[in-house]
């Protein structure tokens, strides 16, 4: 009984404070349009070069645009991200942005943000929630399109891609982590696109877990078990770079004896591309800063934004890579 009473009292206090927060924020948001915007950003962590570039872009653009940024690093843990978002709600920031570590489990904390009238923007990764009113927009790459771009390059360059001249273009594919959205979508985009040319065929496909070591081991086995490999499609640069070492060890020249297409356009990948070891890289852009700040301003001003914003992305061949490399930020 005592415990019950305590619970009731506690929840009353919590509810009261949530209501107060809500009032306070909605009262001030009207006057925000002219003043400085405060953004709370909950980053996943610093697990790769891609992510570091992503963080840097957001921090630098915020500074340039005069947006006050509160930044937290969740070290790949959802609980840390939820804590960070809660503290942003308490601090009454104007807008919250974050890259969800995992897809599910966000409804409660997003509900709190909604009650506090703080708009939320998702970056890079989506959440799996039926209630789309919990966030304003999702800014990130279209992984299917990345796969399609890779496939399109192969279609366009089919005439030079039949390296061994047997009339067939045999492709081996090194996939990303099994079950990860980028791996599923890139595979689908690529394979759907190349289906329009009957000469092009994926003869073997295996996961390399998005790592160099994985890419190398899978390619080693492909080189011995598959006959007449013309093209390698790797789901990210790291896998491709690992595979290049396996190809060299087999006495073949990467980029010539086997054409290589990858996705990401990291600094290492671009260097290999400019040296001709990779033939084509589809960009997966981590520099979301400018687009994110743009969306944040619109959202805070109460303007409507689309539910889904696709990152501006391009692709590189050897000449473009050589030109872009000196100013490449990641």
């Amino acid at each position: 009984m005592v415990a019950n009473k305590f619970l009731v009292a506690a929840s009353a206090i919590v509810l009261g404070s949530v209501a107060l927060t809500g009032c306070g924020n909605s009262g001030s948001s009207g006057s925000k349009s002219g003043g400085t915007i405060t953004m709370g950003f909950a980053q996943v962590g610093a697990e790769s070069g891609w992510r570091t570039a992503n963080t840097k872009s957001i921090q630098e653009t915020a500074k340039k645009d005069g947006i006050k940024l509160k930044f937290s690093d969740a070290q790949q843990k959802q609980e840390n991200q939820i804590k960070a978002i809660r503290s942003y709600i308490q601090q009454k920031v104007d807008v919250i942005a974050f890259s969800p570590v995992v897809e599910t489990g966000w409804d409660a904390v997003l509900q709190e943000a909604k009650r506090a009238h703080i708009p939320v923007i998702l970056t890079d990764r989506a959440v799996d929630s039926k209630d789309t009113s919990l966030y304003k927009t999702f800014l990130g790459s279209d992984f299917v399109k990345e796969g399609q771009k890779a496939g399109q390059w192969l279609l366009d360059n089919a005439s030079t891609s039949d390296v061994n001249g047997d009339g067939k273009i045999n492709v081996v594919e090194i996939e990303g982590t099994t079950g990860a959205a980028p791996a599923i979508d890139r595979k689908k985009g690529f394979e759907d696109t190349i289906a329009s040319d009957s000469k092009i065929k994926v003869i073997a496909s295996q996961t390399g877990d998005f790592t160099r070591d994985g890419g190398k081991q899978v390619m080693e086995a492909f080189l011995k078990s598959q006959k007449g490999i013309d093209v390698l499609f790797a789901h990210n640069d790291d896998e491709g770079l690992g595979a290049i070492e396996a190809i060299k060890a087999a006495g073949l020249t990467p980029g010539k004896d086997i054409k290589i297409i990858t996705i990401d356009a990291t600094h290492d990948g671009m260097t290999a591309l400019s040296q001709g070891e990779i033939n084509y890289i589809v960009e997966c852009n981590p520099l979301l800063g400018p687009q994110l700040m743009d969306l944040a301003k619109k959202v805070v001003d109460g303007k409507s934004v689309p539910q889904r914003v696709v990152t501006e992305e391009t692709a590189f061949d050897q000449a473009q890579a050589t030109a872009a490399l000196p100013t490449r930020q990641y």
Binding site: S205, A221, F222
Partner: peptide, 15 residues
């Protein structure tokens, strides 16, 4: 065993 998976072409989902 690892090499076998790559050589005989077990689908990634079945690894």
């Amino acid at each position: 065993l690892k090499t076998t998976i790559n050589v005989i072409g077990i689908p990634s989902e079945m690894n």
